[in-house]
Design a protein around this nucleic acid. Structure first.
Length: 473
RNA sequence: GGUCCCUUCGUCUAUCGGUUAGGACAUCAGAUUUUCAAUCUGGGGAGAGGGGUUCGACUCCCCUAGGGACUGCCA
């Protein structure tokens, strides 16, 4: 429900640049924009910031689309591509020039560096000499950039939902470039024009843009447009508190997917990172949407904690549909080069519910399910072979008969059957368990015996035991 | 260097002037035990430092320290 002061309807956006992978920090910005739009009944838009022609690629656009889709953060309408809006951007620059808010600057990069140095020495940010000089005849047709004429006095105030009032002295904001020598526009200008044209009411983005909030506020004012509501999110940091890097395990959405995390778990975890709802740790999308408010976002940067992510992922895997999990585990197994039986999918659906409590990721789920997919006869490990002495073999022959006629083929039922069998043999379960486990799994991880047998089914279980008995030592 | 932002257990966070500073993950101990887990019970663990304001500060103000962002003809 929107609070009384919230303009309605809310329009948010995620505006990634297609220059590589989709960073997890960007994914969280997308999530918060999406949550806020859903929470207020507004819309969530996607804009691809591809004004940097050198670095933008088609493949990266696809990565953005795939990442957002996988994360389940569907945007409304068609994506807006920034580069095709260039004529609108140029028109805005023209207006700024005509209004005296921007000017042509003929400095070379080297000259600009020198002037910047001098400006700093004088205690303010860069001011080009061209801001107060009319280009003469000799400048006709010469390469130049367009710079914003930042006021020398006063402060620019950014009202931020997360950080309250942030004040930037204008003297410290440089005459930033709006248009390059080649006539293409730069980030701050394009963002401002596009956010305005797209009717964005709330700009929710990473803290690295906080100072851009100042520059953009200047642009909104100069263009005579209402300033949207800003909200600058804290950064996601590495374990050591610095920038997230490859060493930290993963930084892109694709990598988290590869590591076997469920999208709903990523949503849950990312939502908790920098935002919270009392003591609630594990929740559904519906709950997050109902509870989310940008005002409740914390200010401090947060370190990515894989232990916690694992816990959240485990929780969501427990709740996930087993057929879906089987579909996700199958390609992981294939990629490992595992030879899969024809009924792999069916077998997985039976094992997964029995082992998923112990799995933190889909990768681990694959590990724990693997035993059930092995082809007979299993190759037994040394440890298991060691258990298979004559006494055990004779005992297993008797066990085979018991299992053949066991009528309660369920985890609990089989557990009970095994216990009774052990008693009738006059030994403890410890005398039977390890060997039986090895025979059934071939040394691979497997759940408790009752569950292991249940997942395999009677035929497969008896077959595996039988194989072991006939195996030559 | 300049501007801006941030700072509660190892980590993510709750607290919105008065609490034994709560929860979760991790960790440790115990229980269970047929592997790995899972599960159950219990334990340890925090307001960066210094000044104020106040009857009373984690909470409000100032300073210091530490961390971070920006300071591009990248976004």
């Amino acid at each position: 429900m929107p609070s009384p002061s919230t303009p309605s309807p809310v329009v948010t956006r995620i505006a990634p640049s297609p220059t590589g992978s989709m960073h997890i920090g960007n994914a969280r910005a997308a999530l918060f924009n999406w949550l806020y739009a859903k929470h207020t009944g507004g819309t969530f838009l996607l804009r691809v910031e591809d004004t940097d022609r050198e670095r933008s690629t088609e493949e990266s656009v696809q990565v953005i689309v795939d990442s957002l889709t996988w994360l389940g953060l569907e945007w409304d309408g068609e994506p807006v591509f920034q580069f095709v809006r260039a004529p609108l951007h140029k028109a805005a620059v023209q207006r700024l020039i005509e209004g005296g808010n921007a000017y042509r600057c003929y400095m070379t990069t080297e000259e600009a560096d020198a002037v910047k140095e001098q400006s700093r020495a004088e205690g303010h940010a860069l001011r080009s000499p061209w801001r107060d000089r009319e280009p003469g005849a000799s400048e006709e047709g010469k390469p130049h950039v367009i710079r914003f004429r930042t006021p020398n006095d006063g402060d620019t105030v950014v009202q931020d939902l997360v950080r309250d009032t942030v004040r930037f002295p204008n003297k410290d904001i440089e005459d930033f470039v709006l248009m390059r020598t080649d006539g293409t526009v730069i980030y701050n200008l394009a963002v401002t024009v596009d956010d305005h044209d797209m009717g964005i009411t709330h700009v929710i983005r990473g803290e690295e843009h906080l100072s851009n909030g100042g520059r953009q506020t200047l642009l909104y004012n100069a263009l005579g447009w209402p300033v949207p509501i800003f909200a600058h999110l804290p950064l996601i940091l590495s374990k050591t508190g610095g920038k997230l890097s490859k060493r930290d395990g993963a930084q892109s959405v694709g990598e988290f997917r590869e590591m076997g995390y469920l999208p709903e778990a990523i949503r849950n975890y990312l939502a908790k990172l920098g935002w919270g709802h009392g003591d609630d740790e594990l929740f559904t999308d519906a709950e997050a949407i109902a509870w989310f408010d940008v005002k409740d976002v914390v200010k401090g940067g947060a370190k990515l904690d894989f232990d916690k992510l694992n816990h959240v992922n485990n929780y969501h895997m427990r709740r996930a549909d087993n057929a879906r999990l089987a579909d996700l585990v199958l390609p992981i197994l294939r990629e490992r080069g595992v030879t899969l039986p024809a009924d792999a999918q069916e077998r997985l659906v039976l094992v997964i519910p029995l082992v998923k409590e112990g799995a933190k990721t889909l990768l681990e789920l694959a590990d724990l399910s693997l035993y059930a997919l092995k082809a007979r006869p299993l190759v037994l490990d040394e440890k298991t072979l060691g258990h298979l002495n004559d006494e055990t073999r004779e005992r297993f022959a008797r066990l085979l008969e018991v299992l053949r006629t066991a009528n309660d083929w369920t985890p609990d039922g089989l557990q009970a059957t095994l216990k009774i069998f052990a008693e009738s043999e006059g030994v403890g379960l410890g005398k039977i368990g390890p060997a039986l486990r090895g025979v059934l799994s071939g040394g691979a991880p497997a759940p408790d015996l009752g569950s292991a047998l249940t997942a395999l089914g009677r035929e497969e279980s008896l077959g595996r035991i039988d194989d072991a008995l006939s195996q030559v030592r």
